[in-house]
Design a protein around this nucleic acid. Structure first.
Length: 450
RNA sequence: GUGAGUGUAGCUUAGUCGGUUAAAGCGCCAGAUUGUGGAUCUGGAGAUCGGGGGUUCGAGUCCCCUCAUUCACCCCA
């Protein structure tokens, strides 16, 4: 009985689901194109060495790998070389494959390349609310610009997307500069060897609370003083706005590096001020999981939702991993397509009549030739109407009922003995009129396709 | 990968301390009636209670295993 369900974490899509997804994709792609981003695609599989060791964090562990085939598989098994059973893997995000793409096509691409990519990715984690093993990601990235204008560009574009989707109010973009996080912790007294773990804990602040983070921090070996410093810093900046937090940050962290890193945040805030369609706030406790971030990072949250709707950041060294380690500036933003879709469904933000047709053609009783029905359908379609011809019997009433469920506005009913004319029935009002098929096409097209 | 919960008709669920033939709503099908396809009424089909094993005179109910699923953690979109 359960054999016929798709594998765990994977989904079949019914027409309504599919149309809803197309609707959302369309808003996003149209918006990104308006900002000058170009669509690309890459293979769903990459060589494992492309996907591994590139700072994808935990995601690498969740990779679906593709087993080698034939002799190579036998050889690997024979050698008990378990690490090399697979030679390819399904991509677990769009950023790492994009970095490879850029490296591979560096001399074909313009100096600054802006692309968007809407495509499925796969992760072998346990499915949960709003989380799947196969899900769509929507990434925008700018390659080749180390200006904070690139950040402002992806932020504005993404904010506009979310606004057009229908999340006008309540969205907040939190921003930090990733290298600032270990600097802050260091300034609080955390020893260098604990900085990595410390950053990971700070990232969980929204779940653990400041108390929880400090507690966990001490379990890793941090001193009570460090924990107290951190807690005090958090509490003193919690209620502050970006300006206040930046001031506190400057006080806590000194040095040219820190100044420059904070300066970049200020630049972005300044560029977006009054322009981006979203509230932006500096959050010194934002970290994010990927290890490849080298600069400003950001996340968009909604007060009613426990997870972030979009996230991204700068990764100046990732592309270089595929082409001689030279830095190629890059920054990007990823929209949580699936999560947004779940929210839209819950809140009725999806348009009605997504799987609708305009007209259903059927026969009243037997005696109408199939050919007449098919021909009538074609005549109506010539007027650009979406037409479904009833392919099996059934009463007119039943057919019309089903038609209306599919949001058809009109029924066209052919009768035996009167092959040239048809009854045109308006399904809402149930008024009908008999006319030639040609006239029916004209009339319906006139009413529906204004 | 770790932990908890839930599996009864197509869907949502009820089912007492273990006790006769497992119940209802929605949906579906047929008929009646009205004003048609909607509304109302009548009738009908549809469940080996996720699967396997055990305890018992007797299991939907208790125990074990398994599968599926949901949630939380991890991590993240």
């Amino acid at each position: 009985m359960s054999r016929i369900q798709p594998p765990k974490g994977f989904r079949d899509l019914m027409p309504d689901d599919f149309k809803a997804r197309e609707y959302l994709k369309r808003i996003i792609s149209e918006t990104y194109e308006q900002y000058g981003y170009q669509p690309i695609d890459t293979p769903v599989v990459e060589n494992v060495d492309v996907l591994e060791g590139k700072g994808g964090g935990e995601n690498e562990k969740l990779m679906f790998k593709v087993l080698k085939r034939g002799n190579k598989l036998s050889k690997a098994i024979g050698a008990q070389d378990w690490a090399r059973l697979a030679d390819m893997g399904l991509r677990f995000d769009l950023t790492v494959p994009f970095a490879r793409f850029v490296a591979a096509h560096l001399n074909e691409l313009p100096p600054v390349f802006k692309r968007y990519h809407i495509a499925p990715v796969w992760r072998a984690d346990r499915p949960q609310f709003g989380r799947f093993r196969e899900f769509v990601q929507c990434d925008v990235d700018v390659i080749g610009s180390d200006s904070m204008m690139a950040e402002a560009d992806v932020i504005c574009a993404t904010a506009t997307c979310l606004k057009r989707i229908g999340f006008g109010e309540g969205l907040t973009l939190r921003i930090n500069n990733r290298p600032l996080a270990p600097l802050l912790l260091g300034a609080m007294g955390l020893p260098e060897n604990l900085l990595g773990e410390g950053c990971r804990l700070v990232d969980k602040l929204d779940k653990l609370g400041i108390g929880g983070v400090c507690e966990e921090l001490q379990k890793t070996g941090a001193s009570g003083e460090t924990a107290q410093n951190l807690s005090a810093f958090y509490k003193s900046t919690e209620a502050a706005n970006s300006e206040g937090r930046i001031a506190a940050m400057r006080e806590a962290v000194s040095g040219e590096d820190a100044d420059a890193l904070i300066g970049r945040i200020e630049e972005i805030l300044d560029l977006c001020e009054g322009v981006a369609e979203i509230d932006i706030v500096f959050d010194p406790f934002l970290v994010r999981g990927m290890d490849y971030y080298t600069g400003p990072i950001f996340e968009i949250t909604h007060p009613d939702v426990g997870f972030s709707l979009a996230g991204g950041g700068r990764y100046d060294r990732l592309v270089g991993m595929f082409c001689g380690n030279r830095d190629i500036p890059a920054t990007g933003f990823s929209i949580g397509f699936e999560r947004i879709l779940v929210l839209m469904k819950e809140r009725g933000m999806l348009p009605e009549n997504q799987s609708g047709i305009d007209v259903v053609v059927c026969a009243d009783g037997t005696g109408v030739s199939g050919r007449a029905l098919i021909a009538a359908g074609e005549t109506l379609r010539a007027k650009k109407l979406k037409v479904d011809v009833a392919l099996t019997g059934g009463t007119v009433g039943k057919t019309m009922q089903l038609a209306q469920k599919r949001s058809a506005a009109f029924g066209v009913i052919l009768r035996a003995g009167d092959p040239d004319n048809a009854e045109v029935r308006e399904l809402d009002t149930r008024r009908s009129e008999t006319m030639s098929i040609g006239a029916a096409a004209e009339t319906i097209a006139g009413k529906l396709l204004v």
